[in-house]
């Protein structure tokens, strides 16, 4: 038996690409709070408290000569030595990172040393910033969101009439009936232009629209995503809550928790989820009260005409 090597997920590859592509400079906090050699431990403690920080570099002529962490403050406090100059308590041999290093180096440094922060220096060895794990997390989230937006735009820009490949995510907001339905109409148009039969189009559009209306009418907000290839259309709905108390009941025709206002919009007859299930080839729902609901509906495109209903 030869075990197949596990292929990394595309998403983890993307993160790897990011941490190699980003420079420390783009991720660090640039304006660093520092102290000079002559400051006392009490000064550092006050600075930390006022700025909600847990580490302060000691700087002499723009060069980092030491670093004071919360631990050093606690040690000095224990010894009643808060009036001492920082030079007595600081860690003198500071590991710094160069601003033009890739972020991957910083991550290795975090793994190798047990420090929670690294001063960042320029080519002249002058302090230009500080890097913590929080910086890295925030930068990764920011970059991934940006890439996602770009990918969405690219899909919009390069409409290839022959290609049945599409990945698209639509954010949806509570009670936004004005926009509820736009996503489904757009996807239906996309598929119609690619020659899908009227029956298939109707099934896909109905599943998508019911889920879209559910997000608008019942959730506190969420997103509807489409993953389309030549074999199938996968529609996923994710929301942030409130979650369904009894999923079995929600799948029963006629059961509804809709309020009068939703009913006045022509919905809330308790047919939404059962209808999605009816038109889908595969249907799955997961819901946790207080966490949210996730629905996946798949419709295959290569079915024979007589099986379409």
């Amino acid at each position: 038996m030869d075990p197949k090597p596990k292929e990394p997920l595309p998403s983890s590859l993307r993160v790897q690409e990011l941490i190699c592509g980003l420079k420390i400079r783009e991720v660090m906090t640039p304006n660093v709070i520092t102290v000079s050699r002559t400051c006392t431990m009490r000064d550092v403690q006050t600075l930390m408290k006022e700025n909600s920080i847990t580490g302060v570099p000691v700087v002499d002529n723009s060069r980092v000569v030491g670093i004071i962490s919360m631990n050093d403050i606690m040690n000095a406090l224990e010894k009643g030595a808060m009036k001492d100059a920082v030079t007595h308590w600081m860690m003198g041999e500071v590991q710094t990172l160069a601003e033009d290093m890739p972020l991957s180096f910083a991550i290795s440094a975090f793994n190798k040393f047990s420090f929670r922060r690294f001063p960042v220096v320029n080519k002249k060895n002058e302090l230009v910033g500080i890097l913590t794990f929080r910086n890295i997390n925030l930068a990764l989230i920011r970059e991934l969101s940006r890439q996602l937006r770009e990918m969405e735009c690219q899909h919009e820009a390069s409409i290839d009439l022959d290609s049945l490949e599409l990945v698209k995510v639509y954010p949806l907001h509570r009670y936004d009936f004005e926009n509820g339905g736009k996503a489904s109409s757009e996807i239906k148009k996309f598929l119609k232009e690619r020659g899908l039969s009227a029956k298939l189009l109707r099934r896909i559009a109905v599943a998508s629209y019911e889920l879209e209306i559910n997000l608008v009418a019942h959730s506190t907000g969420g997103m509807l995503s489409f993953d389309i290839n030549k074999e199938r259309v996968k529609i996923s709905s994710h929301d942030r809550g409130p979650g369904i108390v009894d999923v079995e009941q929600a799948l029963t025709e006629g059961f509804s928790t809709a309020n009068e206002w939703i009913r006045s919009q022509g919905f809330g007859a308790g047919m939404g989820l059962p209808n999605v299930k009816r038109v889908s080839d595969e249907f799955a729902i997961q819901s946790t009260v207080g966490m949210g609901t996730m629905v996946n509906a798949i419709i295959y495109l290569n079915v024979k005409e007589e099986n379409e209903d």
Partner: peptide, 10 residues
């Protein structure tokens, strides 16, 4: 939504 629903079912 009436127009939208009509569009959805073709």
């Amino acid at each position: 939504q009436s127009i939208r629903s009509a569009g959805i079912v073709g």
